[in-house]
Design a binder for these strands. Structure first.
Lengths: 271, 271
DNA sequence: TAGTGGTCTAGACCACCGG
DNA sequence: CGGTGGTCTAGACCACTAT
């Protein structure tokens, strides 16, 4: 209680928690509590080093994480400032259905309806950059929650007759999984789109709804490093049964529990 | 041409480009070219330091960026490895319409249709965690591309009669913009959902389509650090005229032009 | 000019992991 | 055990910014 007047404002060098973790959380708490306000300049790195008895490199390591998270904004020659905007836009993570449901804690199943070798139609051929009619492999899966279909998933791969797909590996395949198993070459780039459409007659049949009902469509195309396409996936979700969601919480306010800094993980991925 | 046989494999200390930038790009190029393959172990940090005549801390600074991007995976006691999976899921950035169109390079307009003080209906009241019927402020904007409406945007704010909204500031407001202007307090957390719905009669009128047509709905709720809600935005896009999209390109393969490492920016945000 | 962040060094000790 | 990455130090020089 000597210097600024708060608690938890010193770095405990005896702790197993790295010093830069501790300093990072101290600063984060100072922002969350209002002790540091949006747009404020924080003390210079040298001052923080003196204040907390750390080397400047260690102080920088602490600030680095907060800068990466968009919470601090360094300005050369001027100082480091608390961002004026902690929450701006957001990002929605696109996972394969099984993964997403696991993340959300919702019990879900995937039912493999079939694996077929078939000629590519126009859309698939365009996506895979092959001639229409070329042989492609299709994996068709029904996505269910509580036994009710919520989505129908199609994954198309360039057909290579030398490959052997193991049935046992098809339970929860993500598109990258499949492509990596089927293709030699570096999987380097991907493209994603999310849109709203009307359910086709065929999809409505799978989904147990009427044709024309709104569906959420997530498409993913994967490319190899040489520019070739490697795989195309299209997942069609019933609009009334599935949605995408994300939480943005840069200061870890939701998870605050007064305990030690176990919320450090929040910084690791911005999502 | 003394050591490993490629070009561009030395760090030029006379360059203005930081050494860690150069080493990072060397390693990235080695992965993109196949010289380093997925799952490979890269040389230990001490070896890289010797090889490129850098200190170990500088080597670590170079690797740090690649680890953050998910391209390298360090394992304590074992070494640092090229990730087996460079492209897994992806993230779709959710921007305000104007921002998103600017990013995509599509000319677009926003037309403010009105600002109203009105009682909150059930949905809005729930989102803002207030009683139904409480006064809220609504900003209604029509989103257009080439003069055609593609979306209708509603932003709801807790109404504070002490505030003065300037008409001139309402052209391209994002929800965080508005909330910050209207609310005192730290804007600390946000929640986003993306779903497919049928156009309501009212929205169909704005969008120039039939009621029941599929629409893409993006909802955003902002919270203050004390847990109160601060703003709720709902943007309804014509399903046939607007979609969300993202490109994932961890190795910068799309942008490679053979020139110097001007593609460094790719690492800065995973998006 | 003085102060700031950006980069870099040449060490150090540690925890972890395989053999 | 030896090698690896994780952390940390106490300096250094630089480019940038404001005054």
């Amino acid at each position: 209680m000597s210097v600024t007047g708060g608690r938890n404002l010193e770095v405990n060098r005896a702790s197993f928690e790295p010093a830069y973790h501790q300093l990072r959380e101290i600063i984060r708490r100072q922002i969350a509590s209002g002790e540091l306000r949006l747009g404020d300049r924080i003390p210079p790195e040298n001052e923080l080093a003196q204040r907390y008895q750390l080397s400047r490199m260690t102080v920088r390591r602490a600030l680095e994480d907060l800068v990466e998270a968009g919470i601090l904004v360094p300005k050369r020659g001027l100082g480091t400032f608390v961002a004026r905007r902690l929450v701006d836009a957001g990002t929605v993570r696109i996972d394969d259905f099984s993964e997403e449901m696991r993340r959300r804690g919702i019990p879900a199943e995937c039912k493999l309806l079939g694996v077929r070798i078939m000629p590519a139609d126009g859309n698939v051929a365009t996506r895979l950059r092959i001639d229409a009619g070329s042989a492609v492999m299709l994996l068709l899966r029904l996505l269910l929650v509580e036994g009710e279909p919520v989505g129908i998933d199609r994954k198309y791969l360039l057909y290579d007759r030398s490959s052997r797909i193991l049935e046992s590996e098809l339970e929860h395949p993500s598109l990258p999984d499949l492509v990596e198993r089927e293709t030699s070459g570096l999987l380097g780039r991907a493209s994603i789109t999310v849109k709203a459409c009307s359910a086709s007659q065929e999809d409505a049949g799978y989904l147990g709804c009427a044709a024309g009902e709104p569906v959420l469509v997530v498409e993913q195309t994967l490319y190899l490093s040489d520019g070739r396409s490697a795989g195309y996936g299209k997942t069609v979700y019933r609009g009334d049964k599935h949605y995408l969601t994300a939480e943005i919480d840069p200061l870890g306010i939701r998870d605050r529990d007064g305990g030690q800094a176990e919320m450090a993980g929040i910084l690791q991925r911005r999502g």
